[in-house]
Design a protein around this nucleic acid. Structure first.
Lengths: 332, 332
DNA sequence: CTGAAAGCGCTAACAA
DNA sequence: TTGTTAGCGCTTTCAG
């Protein structure tokens, strides 16, 4: 591997001149410029980004935390982030948490070690205090994980309003026995707590409440959805919910699949509200009524914000474009 | 940020002793060990991975190239790679090419600059010669992109056999007018050329051939699938294909959706063969007959191979677990 | 068992 | 307009 020294020697110049060339400094004569260019070509030289990073303390890679990249919500989000980042000269290092805080901590340590310059947390496992402890090492932004009392950077869609609207829609359709799936542990904590609040607000407005065994925590996958369906169907027929608000289209798909395979009908036996409007939901055996998140815009906004911070600029997130939308189809 | 120097000073020792501690060298007395540990804790010290990397020339991040992370084939592959890599202490830096060689080149440059230590190419845009030029800078492995004549590392599923089997199945079902979608430009080049070979082998065995306007290149998304459907339906009714071999379940889904929305029937009006067996295909309005790739195993094998190379070991890929499987459902 | 010192490849004063 | 030089934070001989 050729180094800057080799280039300097070959061009008959000092390393600083070469360095100036590399950094587009002014005051280099054209002939030297050509000589450097030529030497670089001949040596097939590329500057070592590691050395530059050690010296300047500036990097250009952004860490992204997601719980599972296979979840389309996250893959579309990562797509948006990666493209926005790349267009501004940044790279993305991705880590999946699988709901475990170990990976999250690992990523935070990488920030401390300056291996990544900033972190976008699209999911979050550890305590907010732990994370706040790391913000002195670089910008950290929470993406769709709200902590109003924290002073960490945050960008979120209005999930409370979205799930309120969806729940209200279910109620308006005449459903009153509504179950609830969440990605997190509890109804009003961890994953999706804002969703839970919107859900509960709609319910209490109509003097409805949720039964404990109609709450299904930690549901993520199609398999989880199937399991939820089984649990519901184990309950006495007159004690079953008539509608369910799911944490994702995947879960909704699992429930739907299980119901259909048993010869049951959707929405007659159970109305299902999805979440995310994933590409395939439109063409399922029963097209899903679901909630669309502005994932692309969210990714752009969060990336623009963090890059602005990184470069010492300011950036105002435009929340106008961050609203959820109810997509009415057949499942509810 | 505390440095090794600060730790050394606080512990009343030299940097070399601290460095030895960091690298688990033998010959450090217990009391010094404790002093170092204490100093590190008090200073909240983490070694700079950038400095270490500059010094040792060893990194632990692997670059991954995919064309689109939102394609479930790639997101599941990345999932498998990321988890395997993490379990062995490596990180992954992901870049999407969107079928453009610029990003690919950018990643190759990062290898040259030692920012990533190795590259897994899950899709490939540039010429094989260009890529071979970079292998002197670190291990590069092609994942499901075969170039028998190249000496680059390669791990692939047997796509030729898979698409042969699928096409044979279509023929055995009585279809003889079979169209073909590909992710690449041409029938026998670029993306999916092995697939094309299997397709053609099955066809020619039955003395069948493909019509030029039954070949649909560069198809990736659901939208692309819809467009394919429209193009077919613009052809004279008696000149239309009766079956189609698609490049992905997404494309298949698009075609299916377009047909159904026009009141046409699948497989009666068009039999559709998917590719990938994505999670939702089972529960579509017409469940897809499709081909399953051992994506998880593929990710593991490719990652194990590249890490072995990185660490100077050898690794034998087990091709027994890399076979495709035909999943028979309703669409064909 | 421990320390001094050189150097990884680069940048940025400071001089000239 | 160009060169000299002192580090960035770490590892690694080489001496002791």
């Amino acid at each position: 591997m050729a180094t800057i020294k080799d280039v300097a020697k070959k061009a008959g110049l000092s390393v600083s001149t070469v360095s100036r060339y590399l950094n587009n400094h002014p005051y280099i004569s054209d002939d030297k410029r050509d000589a450097i260019k030529k030497a670089m070509d001949e040596l097939n030289y590329s500057p070592s980004s590691v050395a530059t990073q050690l010296r300047t303390k500036k990097g250009n890679t952004i860490g992204i935390l997601v719980s599972r990249i296979t979840n389309p919500y996250f893959s579309y989000l990562v797509d948006s982030i990666e493209r926005t980042a790349k267009s501004k000269g940044y790279n993305v290092l991705i880590m999946q948490t699988y709901d475990d805080k170990t990976s999250e901590l690992h990523m935070l340590e990488m920030l401390k070690q300056q291996f990544v310059s900033a972190i976008i947390m699209c999911s979050m496992e550890g305590s907010i205090e732990t994370i706040e402890n790391y913000k002195k090492f670089g910008p950290i932004v929470l993406c769709n994980e709200e902590f109003p009392e924290s002073d960490l950077l945050q960008v979120s869609t209005d999930q409370e309003a979205g799930s309120y609207e969806a729940t209200k829609y279910l109620i308006d359709q005449g459903y009153s026995k509504i179950a609830y799936c969440t990605g997190g542990d509890l109804t009003t904590n961890g994953h999706g707590s804002n969703r839970a609040q919107g859900f509960e607000r709609a319910l209490s407005e109509s003097n409805l409440s949720v039964k404990k065994n109609w709450i299904f925590p930690k549901t993520h996958s199609i398999a989880d959805g199937r399991e939820v369906a089984c649990k519901i169907l184990k309950q006495d027929e007159n004690k079953r919910p008539t509608a369910i608000f799911t944490s994702s289209d995947e879960v909704a798909t699992g429930i739907l699949s299980e119901y259909l395979s048993r010869g049951l009908k959707v929405p007659e036996d159970l109305a299902i509200m999805g979440f995310d409007n994933q590409p395939s939901t439109e063409i399922l055996a029963v097209p899903l009524t679901t909630i669309q998140q502005p994932v692309k815009t969210l990714g752009q906004e969060v990336t623009n914000l963090i890059i602005a911070k990184l470069e010492g600029q300011t950036y105002e997130v435009d929340y106008k474009n961050l609203k959820l939308e109810l997509i009415k189809r057949k499942s509810a």
